Amino acid sequence: MAVMATHVITGAGSGIGAAVARRLHERGDGLVLHARDAGRARELAAAFPGAATLVGDLADPDRLSWALSHQSPPDRVDSLLHIAGVVDLGPVGDLTPRTWHHQLNVNLIAPAELTRLLLPQLRAAQGHVVFVNSGAGLNASANWSAYAASKHGLKALADSLRQEEHAHGVRVTSVYPGRTAGPMQVKVHSQEGREYDPARWIDPESVATALLAALDLPRDAEVNDLTIRPGR
């Protein structure tokens, strides 16, 4: 009898994360959904019946180890899907350390720390770590320095982790979506002073389809880097 796969997902509340969680939930896989606080955990548990939750603030990665030690992390982790992210645009001349720290903490340091904390389970299951990066993780534009720096760092984290864990059978994939319709894109357009039209951008379901293809690939192959661009 096949063992049901268990996926730990950050960012399952909206956008790409919600689309991925919904698809995995519909096919009967086990979900452990990360939430920043207990209230959010209750919302996610209601949205995905049967899913477990893990509570910890990605904006405060120093406390994630303490938070997880007071909960029951899953015994098995077939995949760890880092999908949560924050963005705050602005020129280098205006960005404060607070803005830099927030994006680096959520987008880079917290994924590194969650990976470290769940690595024993990932090794045991010969699991898969997926980092949902961004086009900004490959090219930095004006006003995107802090976000792009966090995502360039996320690429480095993934590339190093892939080499370190290959011998343990852990696969590592970076996904680089272009602009994708969702709450983050609403904020970006607001900060850019532009009108938001979701029809112009990638549907989160399309990113979920590509991500799941990488996740479901047979064991004889591994998708290292997956770049997705708007088709319109």
Rank of each mutant, 00 (worst) to 15 (best):
G50Y: 12
T53A: 10
L54D: 07
V55Y: 04
G56L: 10
L58S: 01
L58V: 00
A59V: 06
A59I: 07
A59D: 13
D60H: 06
D60V: 05
P61K: 02
D62S: 03
L64W: 00
L64E: 03
S65R: 14
S65F: 02
W66V: 12
W66N: 12
A67C: 15
L68C: 13
L68V: 11
S69C: 13
S69M: 11
S69L: 14
S69R: 15
H70A: 13
H70Q: 15
Q71Y: 07
Q71L: 06
Q71R: 11
S72R: 12
S72C: 08
P73C: 04
P73W: 08
P73N: 10
P74R: 00
V77I: 04
V77Y: 05
V77L: 01
D78S: 04
D78A: 03
S79G: 15
S79Q: 14
L80F: 05
L81P: 05
H82P: 02
I83N: 11
A84T: 07
A84P: 09
A84G: 13
V86W: 05
V87T: 11
V87E: 12
V87N: 14
D88W: 09
L89E: 12
L89H: 10
L89T: 11
L89C: 12
G90K: 07
P91Y: 12
P91M: 14
V92Q: 10
V92M: 15
V92L: 15
G93Y: 09
G93C: 01
G93F: 06
D94T: 10
D94Y: 05
D94M: 10
L95G: 10
L95W: 11
L95F: 12
T96C: 09
T96R: 14
P97H: 08
P97K: 05
R98P: 00
R98K: 15
W100M: 03
H101F: 13
H101P: 07
H102C: 08
H102F: 07
Q103V: 04
Q103E: 09
L104A: 10
N105I: 00
V106S: 00
N107V: 00
L108Y: 03
L108P: 06
I109A: 02
A110D: 01
A110C: 00
A112K: 01
E113N: 07
L114G: 11
L114R: 04
L114N: 09
L114C: 06
T115A: 04
T115P: 03
R116A: 09
R116I: 08
L117C: 06
L118K: 02
L118R: 05
L119P: 05
P120V: 02
Q121H: 09
Q121V: 04
Q121Y: 08
L122M: 09
L122I: 01
L122R: 03
L122C: 08
R123I: 11
A124Y: 03
A124S: 11
A124V: 00
Q126G: 02
Q126V: 00
G127L: 08
V129A: 00
V129T: 02
V129Y: 01
V129Q: 00
F131K: 07
F131P: 11
V132H: 03
N133E: 10
S134D: 13
G135Q: 14
G137P: 01
G137V: 02
N139M: 13
N139T: 15
A140W: 04
S141W: 15
N143C: 05
N143L: 01
N143Y: 09
W144F: 14
W144Q: 14
S145G: 06
S145P: 03
A146F: 03
A146P: 00
A148R: 02
A149E: 10
A149P: 11
